[in-house]
Design a protein around this nucleic acid. Structure first.
Length: 910
RNA sequence: GUGGGCGUGGCGGAAUGGCAGACGCGCCAGACUUAGGAUCUGGUUCCUCACGGAGUGGAGGUUCAAGUCCUCUCGCCCACACCA
């Protein structure tokens, strides 16, 4: 190993210990006593006091997406976001905010359970070992987390409240009038429900958490169902195992009720457009109409959803999804065999096969005919798996002339194609799916001919509505959230099953006093042989004395991460999931008594992989809690930033198989935490994808070495090194031998010191504000490159510089700060972390003269120096007098001279 | 297919419509050294001996002025994907 640039291996542990011992980064809630001598109290005049919310400084809640503590440990992608938030947290602290910056563990998860299945070891043991390793790694990076607020979703004192929130959801319904969740007791029961059993069934069918027999994504390999979102291309997102559809009894959460609000409230939060767009796409709102087609020889009709009711005249056949309940009732005897065979074929296909074979349309005629309501045409009814049971009504009217899929299908099965839309300019109408003008759309009842598409839609929808045949409708892709898993290592549902007088089974909430409901230890963590979840093995736990039976499903991993940001606010509260005062102070800055900030988390940083699932689920839970009065904001995360992926040295995604994985532990050992942090930020913009470069780390490490040498006397460092060599065990104690360089002096600074400093202050402040860490670091480098050449280095200049460096490289900054003598203005604050952020003096940045580029016809010919006070005429004259520009002016007519004040001159010649 | 993002030196990347390439890596030269994968100084977009010219994936356009704005086009990345 090359010689160390500076003794980071001694400095970094030293400061990490100090911060921990002195609880430097503890954040105080309203009503909490600030211990005497704490730098936060000293800074804000709250030393030893117990402030109420109004006495605390403005809050700033800076949040990381908490990690799943995997057995592999941290990779360099994790600390990217963590470093960014830490820099901002330290910056805001220095600016005087009360900063909440917590960390915790999304600790439920499949790997620990799979290990338990193999070895019989309780998943908690594995989980705790992994948490310990992650904690060590994260702590070694010197992040300013308030560890007193650490949470783990697997902690019973945490999931007690996850279960409690589930009960709030279970005990609520969505009132379509008020468009919000309300306690289930307020649900009006229709008069038809005249027995307690019927009333109960009605209520249960309206709850926000309900049980349904639904076709689910069953993954045999994992032994559990998966949410739609967890299935990618017909395989499990985790592990990549095949997934099949299978009807099962499952818990669902009624997230669809919130579709409109989840969509609408995106407009009130500060997320990137691309992220909002992803959420919008996932929710998938589409406007259209429901249209009912009569069936020949059957009193029922087929209701379809269409976004193009204007093409109704072009509907030449209909398609039901193979699972549609009508199929059995309308299929003619002649077609029965073919239809059943097709249904078997469709259901037997895994999602993977369905996706892979999507190119080729398949389907079967049912033998039934429907009647096009608009022109009385008799059209055949088919079934095909390109129509999804779960979207719209599970049935479509097919308009092959103007829908790609219908067109493919019609061509394959020889069904008629009728033009009803005229494309704008001579384009082929066959398969034309965009807007145009309606044609061939006239009956004795109604005509659309000549109408542009939007107008035609309106006309036909009104007509259908007036006849009771259809209505304007809004449809969503979003489906209710499949919330149960057949696993051991998750939160058990606080639910028991009872059997009613009439023999039907129904659910009942476990009392809140029984929480947390902890999963019992098992000898064997596998599902039961008959396919029941592992918890079913614990007969004593499942069967209760009063004859009721516990729910044996558990909640998905998302549950714990849906609200952890709220628990941080009041992590050790034994009585409530979060106290009202803490919640208001940290989340709702517009509440009475607070003066600053935004509603919700001020900054939330994490990877794009959670762009839909976690963020949508968490928003949903938050809105339910908001409706029920448990939280004070409609949205949890005000500002959200996705950090970009870090690729390997080779520009490829890091993976063990490619052998390009960078282990932070190795980087830390060689370069230290400050260099690691600095490099993570120096690589490029936070949001971009960028490749790791070990040489790049060495570059910023050298920069920190230069900072060190800017301050340190080399002779004393040699003495220190010799002492360390003599007594390696006492190396840390020898740090005291290191002295400041003799030219670091407490003397007045002059303009040639102050100008670079104040330029640096301005640039770093603005860049941190905008999360442009790479350019902030570049500004620090520029300052150091200048300052290192100074003969004398005034302490009053070095001190603010260290403050600017501190958020990025806190250990080194603290160490050097400690060594600086106190200035004329008195001793520096106890900890650099709470020293007020320096401000720049614009007066010091003013130049006497300006460099003005001179262009001729837009090409740079010279740079002239003019006094700041120069008038436009002065500048013009100076430009025309330029020696270098003159040759380009000779023999030509000056047409125009553009003078951009303070910027540039452009002489336009003919 | 749909939506979003991105194309700038050998590399990572800088540039409120106003000097393209800040800062760093690498490379080249020099200094100090027994030595250097240390440190310090200087240089480093390309073509040209030079004057100068060209240059931000490509082609047009707007403008006194375009990496930046507009149109078309090519390439790469990410997400969703039979959503009626």
């Amino acid at each position: 190993m090359a010689r160390r640039q500076y003794p980071f291996h001694l400095i970094e542990p030293r400061w990490q210990q100090r911060w921990e011992q002195e609880q430097t980064f503890r954040a105080w809630n309203p009503g909490e006593a600030v211990p005497p001598g704490h730098p936060f109290g000293l800074r804000h005049g709250l030393d030893g006091k117990t402030p109420v919310a109004a006495q605390l400084p403005p809050k700033c809640y800076i949040l990381d997406m908490f990690p799943y503590p995997s057995g592999e440990g941290l990779h360099v992608g994790h600390p990217e976001g963590y470093t960014a938030t830490d820099i901002l947290a330290r910056f805001r602290r220095a600016q005087g905010y009360n900063v909440l910056h917590p960390m915790g563990w999304d600790a439920f998860g499949l790997p620990a359970e799979q290990y338990a299945v193999k070895t019989g070891q309780h998943p908690r043991v594995t989980t705790q070992a992994n948490i310990a390793n992650f904690t060590r790694q994260i702590r070694s990076l010197g992040f300013s987390y308030d560890w007193s607020r650490e949470v783990a979703t697997t902690d019973p004192e945490y999931f007690r409240w996850t279960q409690w929130i589930f009960l709030q959801i279970y005990n609520a319904w969505f009132n379509p009038e008020t468009r919000r969740a309300e306690p289930i007791a307020t649900l009006p029961i229709p008069s038809g429900c005249d027995t307690p059993a019927k009333q109960r069934a009605y209520r249960d069918s309206r709850r926000l958490a309900y049980v349904a027999e639904a076709p689910v994504n069953w993954c045999p390999e994992l032994g559990t169902v998966l949410a739609n979102e967890e299935v990618v291309d017909g395989r499990s997102e985790v592990g990549g195992f095949p997934v099949v559809r299978k009807p099962m009894r499952q818990w669902m959460l009624r997230i669809t009720a919130y579709a409109e609000r989840l969509l609408g409230d995106l407009n009130n939060i500060d997320w990137t457009d691309s992220l909002k767009e992803m959420q919008r796409n996932w929710i998938g709102r589409s406007e259209g109409a429901q249209v009912t087609f009569a069936l020949e020889g059957n009193p029922e009709g087929i209701t379809v959803f269409t976004t193009r009711p204007d093409t109704l005249f072009g509907a030449t056949y209909m398609v039901l999804s193979p699972e549609h309940p009508l199929v059995a009732r309308i299929t003619t005897p002649a077609q029965r065999e073919a239809v059943s065979a097709y249904q078997a074929f469709a259901s037997g296909r895994s999602d993977l096969e369905r996706t892979e074979l999507a190119k080729e349309k398949t389907g079967v005629f049912t033998g039934a005919h429907a009647v096009n309501p608009v022109n009385g045409q008799r059209i055949p009814v088919w079934i095909a798996d390109y129509v999804l049971a779960s979207y719209g009504t599970g049935a479509i009217m097919a308009v092959p002339a103007h829908d790609t899929r219908d067109f493919e299908f019609a061509v394959k099965f020889g069904l008629p194609v009728v033009q009803v839309v005229e494309p704008p300019s001579g384009r082929d109408w066959r398969g034309y799916t965009d807007e145009g003008v309606a044609v061939n759309s006239t009956s004795d009842q109604v005509s659309l001919d000549g109408l542009p598409t939007p107008e035609a839609k309106r006309r036909i929808t009104d007509w259908l509505a007036s006849r009771g045949l259809g209505a304007r409708t809004i449809n969503y892709k979003l489906r209710d959230w499949l919330f149960s898993r057949q696993r051991y290592w998750g939160e058990p549902f606080p639910i028991v099953w009872r059997t009613g007088e009439d023999g039907t089974r129904y659910t009942e909430a476990v009392g809140e006093e029984a929480l947390p409901l902890v999963p019992p230890p098992l000898d064997d963590y596998k599902p039961t042989p008959d396919g029941q979840p592992p918890l079913a093995r614990a007969a004593d736990w499942v069967n209760l004395p009063d004859g009721s039976v516990r729910e044996t499903n558990t909640m998905p991993q998302w549950a714990g991460s849906c609200w952890y940001y709220l628990r941080y606010l009041d992590a050790r509260n034994p009585d409530r999931f979060v106290s009202e005062s803490a919640e208001r102070y940290w989340m709702d800055s517009t509440a009475a008594g607070s003066r600053f900030g935004v509603q919700g988390v001020d900054l939330y940083v994490g990877g794009t992989e959670h762009a839909v699932l976690h963020l949508l689920y968490a928003r949903f839970w938050h809105k339910v809690l908001f409706d029920l009065g448990h939280v004070s904001t409609a949205e949890p995360f005000h500002r959200l930033v996705n950090q970009g992926l870090i690729l390997g040295d080779d520009g490829q995604k890091m993976s063990k198989s490619r052998g390009n994985v960078v282990n932070p532990d190795d980087v830390l050992a060689e370069y230290g935490a400050d260099a690691f942090r600095l490099y993570e930020m120096f690589m490029g913009p936070l949001q971009e994808v960028k490749p790791w470069s070990t040489q790049g780390v060495a570059g910023v490490y050298k920069f920190l070495g230069r900072v060190w040498r800017l301050f340190i006397d080399e002779t004393s460092e040699t003495a220190f090194e010799q002492a360390c060599a003599a007594e390696p065990d006492r190396a840390a104690a020898h740090l005291g031998l290191i002295k400041l360089a003799p030219n670091v002096q407490d003397v007045p600074a002059d303009a040639h010191h102050l100008k670079p400093l104040h330029q640096c202050i301005r640039k770093v402040t603005e860049d941190l504000e905008g999360l442009r860490f790479n350019t902030a670091i570049s500004a620090l480098m520029i300052f150091v490159n200048e300052a290192i050449a100074w003969e004398v280095k005034p302490v009053s200049v070095l001190r603010p510089f260290l403050q600017l460096l501190a958020p990025l490289a806190p250990h080194l900054a603290e160490q050097l700060w400690e060594m600086l003598p106190s200035g004329p203005s008195g001793a520096p604050p106890e900890s650099l972390s709470y020293a007020p952020w320096p401000s720049f003096d614009p007066a010091l940045l003013v130049e006497d003269t300006l460099e003005i580029p001179v262009q001729v016809n837009g090409k740079l010919r010279d740079v002239i120096r003019v006094p700041v006070a120069a008038t436009q005429a002065d500048i013009e004259a100076a430009a025309l007098a330029s020696e270098k520009a003159r040759p380009f002016l000779e023999g030509r007519t000056v047409r125009k001279i553009i003078v951009v004040p303070r910027k540039l001159v452009n002489i336009v010649v003919a």
